[in-house]
Design a protein around this nucleic acid. Structure first.
Lengths: 191, 191, 191, 191
DNA sequence: CCTTAATCGAGACGGTACGTCATGTCTTGGG
DNA sequence: CCCAAGACATGACGTACCGTCTCGATTAAGG
C-alpha cells in the first residue's frame, strides 16, 4: 500500500500518484506483469524511479495499488425478475472491460504474491460475488427461490467460472457465456 | 518441446531428463514460476544449464514439459451411486496433490504464455472435466438425472471452482470443500 | 562562493553558516569528499538542504568554503638558530592537525576541481611554504646560508614531502619525519 | 585484484580483460574517476557489466587494476655522469605520459581507498623512487657522493615534488621543472 | 580398436531489470 | 526572504537472471 509520511516537508504531488497508476495500468495491459519494467512505468509517467519507490515497496506492491485503483462496485440490480438481476450482475462483471484486461496481464503474479492475489480479489472478485449474493438472498427472502439454496456457494459460481474461463481457458467472457451460465446453472440451482 | 538430434554422437542421458523435470516441479512448487531461476533448476538437478537448453527452448517450454509430465488420468468411477461417483471424481482431483501445488506456483505465467496455459489445461483441467462429463452423461443415460441438464456446463463447475479457490482465493481444496460443492451445487443441478 | 541576496526579508542566520561549515569539516575528515553526502551534512548540522544550496552553488563550493575556513597562518619563527626555526615551521605544519586530516579526506576531489585545489592550496600549502621561504631568506641574508641556495625551491621541499607522505603514502606526519627532513635534507641544502 | 575461479567451466576470455582495462584507462583519462561510470566502461569495452563484476569487486578495485596495469619500470640509467643519470630518472617519470594522465584522473579516489592509493603508489611512485635510490647509492659507492648522504630520503625528493606539483599545484611536470629540481636540490644534496 | 560427433557439468559471455542512493532543484507551512 | 523537511527528476551503483557459448572430459556407434 502507499506509505504515508509525516506532515512536515513538501507534500506528495497527487498528480504523480495518478500518473504512476495510469502508466502502470496501461503497461500492465499492454505487456503483462513480467514484461513491464518499473523504468518504463517511470518513463511513461514522466516520473523518477524514486517517486515510485517512495510510494510502494516494490513492483508487486505498485501493481497491487494499480489494481485496487480499478475497483468499482456497481449498485445491486433490482429489476423485479431474478433472471434479469442475475444477467445484470454478470454483465456488470463483463463490462468492467479495462478491469478485465488489466487482470489478464496481472494474473502473472497472483499466485506468487498472496497480497497481490488478495488485492486483485478485493478489487475484482469480492464485489461481484457480493452482488450475486445480495440478489440471491433477496430471491430467497421473497420466496422466488427455495430457502434450501446455499446462497454463498451459488454466488461464487459465476465469478469462479468467469475467472477460470479467462485465465485457465484463455477464452473471452462474452454474452453467450453469460447467458449460458445463468440459464444452465444459476437459474436451475435457484429452481 | 524436446528437440531431437541426429543419431550419431553420444546419446542423451535419460536420467538427466528426469532430474531436470523433478527439479523443475519441486522448485515451481516451492517458489513459483518467476522466482524459479533456471540456474537453481540446474543446480538442484545436478546438471549444467546447457543440458536444459539442449532439451527445451526456454524457461516457459521447460515448465510446459514439467507440467505435462504430471498428467495422470484416473479411470472413470462407477460406484452405482451418482453422489459417490461425483465425490470420486472430485477426490481424484483433490488427491493429485502435487499436481495442484505445482499448478498454483505456475499460475504465474499462464496468462502470458498461451502454450503454457494450454499445456497446464491439457495436463490438469481437461482430464478431470471429462471425468465429470462422463459420469454426468451416464447419469442422464440411466435416467438418474434429467436430460434437460447441460452436461458440458455442469461438468466444468467443479474444476472451475477448485481452480478459482486455489489460485484466486488461495484456499486449500479439502474434503469439506469437495462435499459442499457436490451437495450444494452438483447434485441440485442434477436433481 | 556565498551568494548574497537583497536586504529585504528575513536575514540569514549566522549560526547556520557555522553549523554547516563545522559539519562539513567533520564529515570530510571522517569520510572524505566522495563518501560525504550533502544530506548527511544537512542532518549533522541540523539544517535543511536548502540552507546549504542557498549559500553555496554545489558540493565542491561548500568544501572550498569549509577548507578556507581552516586557514591559520602562524607567525614567522625567529629563535636565532636556523635548525630550530626550520623545526618550528615544520611543527606548525604538523600541529595544524585538524587541517591535515581534513586535507587528507579532501584530496579526493582536488585533481578534478581546480578551484578546490586552489582553495586547499591557499588554505594549507601556501602559508607554510611562505613561512619556510621567510626563514630561509633570512638565513641567506644573515650569511648563515650561502646565497647560492635556491630559496624558493628549498622552501617547497618540506610541504611537498609532507603532502606526498600524507596522501600518496598514507603515512603519518610525525616528529621523526620532521626531524629527518630537516636534518637529512633541509640543513644539508642550506650548508 | 582480479578474482580467480576454479579451473573447470569456461575459462575467462583474456581479450575481455584487456578490453575492460583499456576502456577503464581511457575513460579515467577522459573523465576522471567519479564521472566514469561502469556502464560506460562496459559499453566502451563491448562487454556486459557482469564480466566486470566477475573480475573485480567494485569500481575502485577495477581502477586499482587498471592503474597497476600501467606500471612500467624502465632500466636503471648508467651514463657515467651522476647529473645525467638523475635527469634520466626524472625524464623516465615525466615521459610515462599516459600513466601520468591516468593518475591525474585517478587522484580523485586515492585518499579514500587505501588500496587504491597503494596500487597507484606501487604502479607509479615506488618504481621511480627505487630508480633514484639505485642511482644515488651507486654514486655513494663510487665515491661520487659522500656517504653521509641519506640516500632513502633524497630519492624521495623528486617523486614527492612531482606528485605535489601535479596534484596539489596543478602545474605540468615539464623539462624546466625537472632540470631545476636536479640542479637546485638533488645535486647540491649529493655535493 | 579408433575415430567421430554429440553429450556432460561448469561457468563465462552480452544484455537487461531490479531496488538503492546521492545530486541539485523545488515546494510546502511557518517564522 | 529565511528556515526545516522532504518530494522531485536524473542517473550510477552493484546484484541477479536470461539464453548463448566455450571449455575439457565422457560416451556410444560406425569404420
Amino acid at each position: 500500500m502507499t506509505r504515508r509520511s509525516s506532515s512536515v516537508g513538501r507534500p506528495r504531488d497527487a498528480s504523480v500518484d495518478i500518473a504512476i497508476l495510469k502508466a502502470t495500468q496501461d503497461l500492465l495491459l499492454e505487456q503483462g506483469f513480467d514484461l513491464m519494467s518499473l523504468e518504463s512505468v517511470a518513463a511513461r509517467a514522466g516520473v523518477g524511479k524514486g517517486a515510485i519507490y517512495r510510494r510502494w515497496d516494490d513492483k508487486t506492491q505498485l501493481v497491487v495499488g494499480a489494481v485496487s485503483d480499478l475497483a468499482q462496485l456497481p449498485p445491486t440490480p433490482d429489476t423485479g425478475s431474478l433472471r434479469d438481476d442475475l444477467l445484470a450482475c454478470a454483465h456488470a462483471f463483463v463490462h468492467s472491460a479495462r478491469t478485465q484486461a488489466v487482470l489478464a496481464g496481472l494474473m502473472t503474479a497472483m499466485a506468487r504474491h498472496p497480497e497481490l492475489r488478495d488485492s486483485a480479489r478485493a478489487a475484482l472478485g469480492l464485489p461481484f460475488t457480493r452482488l450475486f449474493q445480495e440478489v440471491i438472498e433477496r430471491a430467497i427472502a421473497t420466496g422466488e427461490a427455495p430457502d434450501t439454496v446455499d446462497a454463498k456457494a451459488v454466488s461464487e459460481v459465476f465469478p469462479a467460472l468467469a475467472f477460470h474461463r479467462a485465465t485457465a481457458l484463455g477464452l473471452p467472457i462474452d454474452d453467450d457465456f453469460v447467458v449460458r451460465v445463468v440459464d444452465s446453472l444459476l437459474l436451475p440451482l435457484l429452481r
